Amino acid sequence: MRGASLSIKAWVQTLKIQACSLGLLWVFGLTIVGSPLILIAVAARGFIVGFTVGFLVQEEAGKGLILAIAGVLPQNLCYIPAFLGAGVLSLYFSFTLLRTQDAPYRRLGVYTLLFLVFFLLVLIGSWLEAYLAPGLMRLILPILK
């Protein structure tokens, strides 16, 4: 039972972090000034994932590649499309605010609903990160020794 509660805590913590990042992209899209921040946020996430995979592969060669596939890939199959899509949508919405003069209330609803779709991807990714990735790591670690 103790392991299940640790997994739930890990899932909640991961979901909190990822949802906050997604929420920031949503807020940045509401302002025209937030456009550069959207690009910085998406680029920083890409740098972090790339650095992690590159480090693992450079330090451990084939073992590092297997570690990256088991520990980094599963959740990022959901996170990368979610954050790229959210970044593009945020930029589009921000530029739409700049171009149009009418009230954007209807567009704000569609914008928020699309972000809920991205949140579902983040929810799935955080579940994969908390439950699937540790299980895969436990399976491959004895093989890599």
Rank of each mutant, 00 (worst) to 15 (best):
S126E: 03
E59L: 10
G50N: 08
F83V: 07
L97A: 03
F47P: 05
L84A: 08
T14L: 09
I80C: 01
V49Q: 05
K9T: 13
V72F: 01
T52P: 02
L121H: 08
C78S: 06
L39R: 08
P104I: 10
L139N: 12
I124S: 05
A19V: 13
K63Q: 13
S21L: 12
G87Q: 04
L37T: 11
A19L: 13
I66K: 04
G62E: 12
G34E: 08
Y79W: 05
F95V: 15
Y131M: 03
L123C: 10
L128H: 03
L39N: 09
L128D: 04
Q13R: 14
R107D: 13
L139C: 10
A44W: 07
F95M: 12
L37W: 13
S90P: 04
G125Q: 07
L77Y: 03
V42M: 01
T112N: 02
R2D: 15
F47Y: 11
K9L: 15
R138F: 01
A130I: 07
L108W: 03
V57L: 10
G87H: 03
A44S: 12
F93Y: 06
F47S: 09
G62I: 11
S7F: 11
L132E: 11
R2A: 15
A44C: 09
T52Q: 07
A19R: 02
R45V: 11
S7T: 15
Y92A: 15
A44K: 11
A133E: 11
Q18V: 06
T14P: 04
L37H: 09
G3L: 12
